[in-house]
Computed example of a mutant assay.
Amino acid sequence: MNYKYTYESPLGTMIMLGTLTYLTDLFFVDEAHAPSYDDAEYIEQKTGPFEVTIMWLDQYFKGQKPFITPPIQLEGTEFRKSVWSVLQTIPYGETTTYGDIGKQIAEKQGIDKMSAQAVGGAVGHNPISIIIPCHRVIGSNGKLTGYAGGIERKKYMLDLEAKHK
Rank of each mutant, 00 (worst) to 15 (best):
L87Y: 02
E94D: 15
V83C: 04
D58V: 04
Y147T: 03
Y37S: 11
Q117D: 15
Q64I: 09
P91I: 12
Y60A: 00
L160R: 01
E94H: 14
D39H: 13
Q117C: 15
P71N: 07
E152Y: 05
N126D: 08
T19W: 10
Q64S: 11
T19S: 15
T77E: 08
L26E: 00
M14V: 09
E152N: 08
K103L: 12
G149K: 00
Y60M: 01
I90C: 08
R153K: 10
Q59S: 12
M55E: 11
I101N: 01
T24R: 04
Q73N: 09
T21G: 10
G150Q: 02
I151E: 07
G93N: 12
G150M: 01
A122Y: 09
K155H: 06
I138Y: 05
E8V: 11
Y37L: 13
Y3A: 01
S115M: 10
L160Q: 00
A34Y: 12
I132Q: 04
Y156G: 00
K108Y: 11
D38F: 14
M14H: 09
V29M: 15
E152T: 09
I138F: 06
T47K: 10
I151S: 04
F61Y: 12
F61W: 09
K46T: 07
G150L: 01
M55D: 10
T96Q: 07
S129G: 12
Y92M: 06
M14F: 07
L23E: 00
E31P: 01
T97E: 03
C134L: 12
S140G: 14
V52K: 06
G121P: 09
K4H: 13
S9K: 12
G124D: 08
L11F: 06
L23V: 05
I43N: 06
Y37D: 11
V137Y: 07
P70L: 03
N2C: 08
Q88A: 11
K108E: 15
G99S: 15
H125C: 12
P71M: 03
V29N: 13
D25G: 04
L144Y: 13
A162P: 00
L158H: 01
T97F: 11
Y3C: 02
E51Y: 04
K4N: 08
Q104A: 13
G102N: 04
G48R: 07
D38E: 14
H135E: 10
G121R: 10
Q45M: 13
G63E: 05
K143A: 14
E8A: 10
N2R: 13
T89S: 11
T89A: 07
A118L: 15
T21L: 14
R153T: 01
P35I: 13
Q109R: 15
M55I: 05
T97M: 02
F50C: 01
I72F: 00
T89E: 14
G63Q: 05
H33P: 05
H125V: 07
P35H: 08
L74I: 04
P66S: 03
L57I: 03
G124F: 14
S82I: 09
F28A: 03
V123H: 01
Q45A: 12
T24W: 02
E161I: 00
E107D: 15
A162G: 00
S115G: 12
T145D: 09
V137T: 07
Y98E: 02
